[in-house]
């Protein structure tokens, strides 16, 4: 749980026109930890995720992933880095023209030495590790429920055994049983594959079940980071409201 951070964000500033989303934002993701990123709607949680994986242009600051500066990379270096992380988008973002197995095979096609049979076998393994039944392999994304699409998106994110896993609202829209199973799956995969997980969520249960640390986004920066226990002692109105509200009490099981 210690050592050098795999993601180091310093002084990040992102803005859309005159609307500043982040200003002077610092954040670390340590190797092997699950970091939950929370914040009110519109505080730029997803924008931060997109900025780190290079989908969003930044105005200032540095983002370092696995020791490499995002933005300074080009061509092959960037592709090599992209193969060391996996991103699961909110609704899976599966390619609708491909079956689930073919979706998972897409990143595996970057590996030149794999035979077709190996690629299929590995894709089916990832689908099964993500908790989908074998017959889901042949289904198209439109045939799947929301929870299954998320799992298929997770399988695709895990295809190349990444070091860092980005999850955008992994449990949003799932029923409590499905969400709990997904939380457990994330922890299991982290333990088995030694992942570092960057998890954007609204779900207090997920924060309790998975996250080693929590980072709270507010006022355009990371207001505070710490364990769930630390969060309860933070003296900021929004953080207090968030972690002491009725839903938070239900999630911690305290009165």
């Amino acid at each position: 749980m210690s050592g050098d951070p795999v993601i180091r964000v310093r002084g990040l500033r992102t803005a859309f026109g005159s609307h500043v989303v982040h200003d002077d934002l610092d954040l670390d993701l340590r190797r092997g930890e699950i970091l939950g990123v929370v914040g009110g709607s519109g505080t730029g949680k997803s924008v931060l995720l997109r900025a780190i994986v290079g989908l969003e242009a930044t105005q200032a600051g540095s983002i370092e992933v696995l020791g490499r500066q995002i933005g300074a990379l080009s061509g092959d270096d960037r592709r090599a880095l992209e193969q060391r992380w996996g991103v699961m988008f909110q609704d899976g973002a599966l390619f609708s023209a491909l079956t689930v197995r073919e979706n998972v095979e897409v990143p595996l096609r970057a590996v030149p030495s794999l035979t077709d049979a190996q690629r299929e076998g590995l894709a089916e393994l990832k689908v099964s590790m993500a908790g989908l039944p074998w017959k889901a392999n042949a289904d198209f994304p439109a045939d799947l429920s929301g929870g299954m699409r998320k799992r298929a998106g997770l399988a695709r994110a895990l295809a190349l055994d990444p070091e860092i896993l980005f999850l955008d609202e992994p449990t949003a829209g799932l029923d409590p049983i499905g969400a709990t199973a997904f939380d457990r799956l994330i922890v299991t995969l982290r333990d088995a594959l030694n992942l570092s997980v960057f998890l954007v969520t609204h779900d207090l249960d997920t924060l309790h079940a998975c996250c080693d640390r929590v980072a709270v986004l507010a006022e355009r920066r990371v207001l505070t980071t710490g364990t769930m226990a630390d969060m309860l002692t933070v003296d900021h109105p929004w953080v207090h409201e968030y972690f002491h509200g009725p839903r938070a009490r239900a999630a911690t099981g305290k009165e």
Partner: peptide, 28 residues
């Protein structure tokens, strides 16, 4: 790992494999 899986392909499937020198192993 997934990138080096091809190098193992020619080895007979039932051969004895000594893994004591292995440093990294991934799911593939």
């Amino acid at each position: 790992v997934v990138w080096t899986l091809g190098a193992l392909a020619p080895v007979s499937p039932s051969a004895r494999i000594d893994l004591s020198g292995l440093s990294r192993l991934d799911t593939a």
